[in-house]
Simulated assay, not measured.
Amino acid sequence: MTTTTNRDHLPRGVFAAGSRRTRMAALTTRLTLRPMTNLLPTNRSGVEFSRRLVATSMNLFGPVPKGTRVDLVSDDPVRGEWVRAPGLTPGPRVVLYIHGSAYVICSARTHRGLTSRLSRSTGLPVFTVDYRLAPEHPFPAAADDVESAYRWLLDQGYSAANIVIAGDSAGGHLAADLLIENDRTGTPQPGAMVLFSPLVDLNFGLSAQAERSRKDPMISAAAARKLVALYTDGHDADLPRLRLDLALVRDLPPTLIQVGGAEMLRGDARHLNTMIHAAGGLCELEIWPDQMHVFQALPRLIPEAEHALEHASEFITRTLDNPVVQHNSMKQVNR
């Protein structure tokens, strides 16, 4: 087994190559799913088909563990759901989860398997914000809903230092936007952040560059760009809330980024890691060999999924239990 290196960002205790099941899953996905996602139109019927396809896949390969408690929330303008692992005892800490899938496809429900296992792994309740989706609700609807959910948790009595922001894919972009808005409005920043396969560049230039060396098994950069365009809706991708710039953001929370070595967003993950360090923040980047996009959501398919969540849980506990590290954002760590 190998340890993490600064060059490869290998997670601690992870082999330098994915498991056989992982590599077979990536090959099968590349041969079956990728051709379909690249051809699907971005009209109403295409979007609805994509939503059904992803919902079915998430439920099949990442089901909700038995005994999980789910409580729906509708407290205008906040919509979402509380997800609690069996036997969970309430406490002062909470995870705010921001799901991904191009601002268009997924929901709190599709991610219930992932958030329930995250709750089980961390021992924390997870509130998944069910933000409005494009194309029905273009920019800045999703970003505004995420900001409202964070303020709502503060109003519920949670200390910012005890809130963990977690998210995947487009949820990573929304999470970073939240930090920028918190800084702009003087709102206290969360205590920690964990991102799975975060999207950073909405022009998908970084993804296109990564594709030249290895094609993403699930979708091409061009097809993903068309989906995201339903959210940006004609706005210039260099608009401040669309082009992430963390350079002047104060008190960035300690962050863990996990990304698959087989996916095109590995370039985005590296870029976000570099931005956080350049801003004086603390960030750990883990590149999981041969893994696909948000592999943590697919435990029935990917053996490493649970191991990755264990890493995330350890990071959260270590960060929240150590207030010196938590608030020393000028110290840089690179595992």
Rank of each mutant, 00 (worst) to 15 (best):
N182I: 09
R243Y: 03
A221W: 06
I276Q: 03
T274D: 14
M193P: 01
Q189T: 14
L202V: 15
G205A: 11
Q258W: 01
A221P: 07
L252R: 06
Q209P: 00
L244G: 00
G186L: 13
E211F: 06
D251R: 14
P254N: 10
P217H: 04
E263F: 08
L230M: 12
G267A: 15
G205I: 07
N273L: 01
T274H: 13
Y231S: 08
P190W: 06
P253S: 07
A210E: 15
A224L: 12
R266Q: 13
L265P: 01
L242G: 06
L199E: 01
P254T: 10
E211D: 14
D236Y: 10
F204K: 05
I276Y: 04
L230C: 10
L272P: 00
L248H: 15
T185A: 14
L195Q: 09
V228P: 01
P217R: 08
A221K: 04
N203H: 10
A210W: 01
L256G: 02
G234V: 05
N203D: 14
A192G: 07
H271S: 12
H235K: 10
R241P: 05
Q258R: 02
A192D: 01
N273G: 11
P217E: 07
A208N: 09
H235N: 15
L256C: 08
A208I: 01
N182A: 13
G186P: 10
S213T: 15
A223T: 10
A210Y: 01
P254F: 08
L246H: 08
Q258E: 14
R241A: 14
A237S: 15
D251G: 06
L272W: 10
